[in-house]
């Protein structure tokens, strides 16, 4: 593995009973890159993230994240990464502030530092006015922001974000996407999935497209366009739809109009 790569994935496979969810996936992500991981529903994105973050054991294959092998010391891996999964695993009966303090302390931060970072994150993500409210009473967008704050509180060098902007209001969405950009500028690597292709096109330096468990394309948007012989102004959406063989119907409904 080259030192320039934060994530190196080699033949990662996950089989549930007889169904292969992720099939020999391999790719590399350079340090400090904003890497978009795209695919239709059920393509294997979340399964890949769970394997890369140590929450799911691969059936075969391995990965190295910031020099730590997935099959090796999982705790060392967890010290270096921050994770925002689609399910938003949160303790619903804690307040937002309690939750963030708890996450900071579980990452081993001293209490004054945990307090300082919690305050900063609550302010930054506009959660401060609702700091005492229980998570169960948060809106989906607020839960997402809190889960993101938990992923950031310990200062990870690699961030795995599954649909981080989904359900967040436009103002917070801009704040979060600007923050993520600044993080990559400071050398943090971002592994990012989203269904909103405009956002991916705007933010990501590089993308990989997964379909039915297999990587069907990887590179910068220009590289993928060139590989697939698409015209220079083809959008990421055009590329994506072509690669996943989407059947986009164009006829109207008979009784409407």
């Amino acid at each position: 593995m080259s030192d320039a790569h934060a994530i190196v994935v080699e033949g990662l496979t996950k089989t549930f009973r007889r169904q292969t969810a992720v099939d020999r996936v391999s790719f590399r992500v350079a340090r400090g890159r904003f890497f978009g991981f795209l695919g239709p529903n059920g393509a294997g994105k979340s399964t890949t993230i769970k394997m890369l973050t140590g929450l799911l054991r691969p059936t075969s294959g391995d990965a190295v994240i910031e020099g730590v092998r997935l099959s090796g010391d999982l705790l060392a891996l967890k010290r270096k990464i921050g994770v925002l999964t689609e399910e938003l695993p949160l303790y619903e009966r804690l307040s937002g502030e309690e939750h963030l303090l708890f996450a900071a302390r579980m990452h081993g931060l001293a209490r004054p530092e945990a307090r300082r970072r919690t305050e900063e994150l609550l302010d930054f993500l506009s959660l401060a006015p609702e700091r005492g409210k229980l998570v169960v009473d948060y809106s989906q967008g607020m839960k997402k922001k809190l889960a993101l704050a938990c992923a950031l509180v310990h200062g990870p060098s690699v961030l795995f974000l599954d649909e981080p902007l989904n359900g967040i209001d436009p103002v917070s969405g801009r704040v979060v996407s600007d923050l993520l950009r600044r993080l990559t500028a400071r050398g943090v690597t971002l592994f990012f999935t989203s269904h909103v292709l405009d956002v991916v096109e705007r933010l990501c330096d590089e993308v990989a497209i997964i379909d039915r468990g297999r990587i069907v394309a990887q590179g910068t948007l220009d590289e993928i366009r060139a590989q697939r012989a698409m015209v220079g102004d083809a959008s990421l959406e055009d590329v994506f739809l072509k690669l996943v063989h989407a059947d986009v119907r164009r006829e109207d409904l008979s009784w409407i109009g």
């Binding site: 990452h107 081993g108 938990c150």
Partner: peptide
């Protein structure tokens, strides 16, 4: 549902 978070801590 916080289980994933708990096991994500180092």
């Amino acid at each position: 549902q916080g289980l994933g978070l708990l096991f994500g801590f180092p």
